[in-house]
């Protein structure tokens, strides 16, 4: 009984954590390349979920088969979230690349508030029911009491996406250019890397990961509103910092640790304070190990 309960919490934490990891990757990649906390990243996640909801509803009304709806809604979420990410960077961050550090951060906060209210005004302030995009797999039936299909789907897609991302960053030209830009932007520019393209690419990749996260969470939770991005964004940021911002394996580890902590703490201590645990963890990490679990300590240059 005791062990079963623990196991349940553990799996819940794993699922939660992998979602955090997906969103955290966007933060960490953007931070690595442009040293900016993309405060609007949570809103990109929310926009991804909204796009999926809208496309899925339209296709349902038009009578498309279930599988087509799932695929197209997912693709639409990725495409539009990337488009938003790309646009946000061009509008709100690119003009501020040489500005003092607080300027792009304030601009990012402004962007975040803008996007929330944009969705609020164009759509609704109420919670919308999100269709069950992920079906109950028949072959999984015997095991579904351990972990449901949606959760399984989340775990599997997260693992696949991580592998894909690792491949892109390690082996493709763009990935190499990204790493070079993260190391030293001026130097990357001097050796002929188009830094603008790299930054755009980073935002696009980060945003599509957020979109996938958004769709997965929304179909698991069953409802969305314009505000879901705020909390998800903060938590994912916590995960990114926890692992060491700028580090890709760090974001994954941070996401998992955060998911576990939340799941276990709500299970054993109190569920009222679920969000407090995340914030408390964030505060503690920043105070005691600002470089994160896998980050390197850097000495400030004088």
């Amino acid at each position: 009984m005791e062990l079963e309960y623990f196991f349940e919490l553990f799996l819940g934490g794993l699922v939660k954590g992998s979602i955090y990891a997906l969103i955290a990757l966007g933060y960490t990649m953007v931070y690595g390349v442009v040293e900016l906390i993309n405060f609007a990243h949570g809103e990109i996640y929310m926009l991804g979920a909204y796009t999926a909801l809208i496309v899925a509803s339209v296709l349902t009304v038009l009578g498309f088969p279930q599988l087509a709806i799932v695929v197209m809604a997912g693709l639409a979420a990725i495409i539009w979230a990337s488009a938003y990410g790309y646009t946000v960077e061009k509008v709100a961050y690119k003009p501020l690349r040489k500005a003092p550090r607080l300027s792009p951060l304030i601009s990012a906060i402004g962007m975040s508030i803008f996007l929330q209210n944009y969705v609020l005004l164009a759509q609704t302030d109420k919670f919308l029911p999100f269709p069950e995009l992920i079906p109950e797999f028949e072959f999984w039936e015997p095991y579904s009491h351990i972990i449901g299909s949606p959760s399984l789907m989340i775990l599997v897609s997260t693992v696949i996406i991580m592998m894909l991302l690792t491949y892109i960053i390690k082996y493709t030209t763009m990935g190499k250019a990204m790493r070079a830009t993260a190391q030293d932007r001026t130097m990357a520019m001097l050796v002929g890397i188009s830094v603008n393209k790299v930054i755009s690419f980073t935002f696009v990749i980060g945003s599509s990961l957020a979109a996938v996260g958004g769709v997965l969470v929304a179909s698991q939770m069953g409802q969305i509103n314009f505000y879901i991005g705020f909390m998800a964004g903060i938590k994912a940021f916590t995960a990114a910092v926890l692992g060491g911002i700028g580090s890709i394996p760090g974001a994954v580890l941070g996401g998992l640790v955060l998911g576990m902590t939340e799941s276990l703490a709500t299970g054993y201590i109190s569920s009222d304070y679920e969000d407090v645990f995340a914030f408390a963890l964030l505060v503690l990490i920043l105070i005691f190990r600002p470089a994160g679990l896998l980050g390197r300590n850097t000495t400030q240059k004088v």
Binding site: I37, V241, F279, V283, L286, P290
Partner: peptide
């Protein structure tokens, strides 16, 4: 606790502090 933090990290921690207060 946040004496050592600078810039954007400080911003996020203070945000967390605000939210912790509200949730409490």
């Amino acid at each position: 606790p946040v004496l050592r933090l600078r810039g954007d990290y400080l911003a996020i921690v203070t945000l967390g502090f605000g939210e912790i207060t509200r949730i409490t």
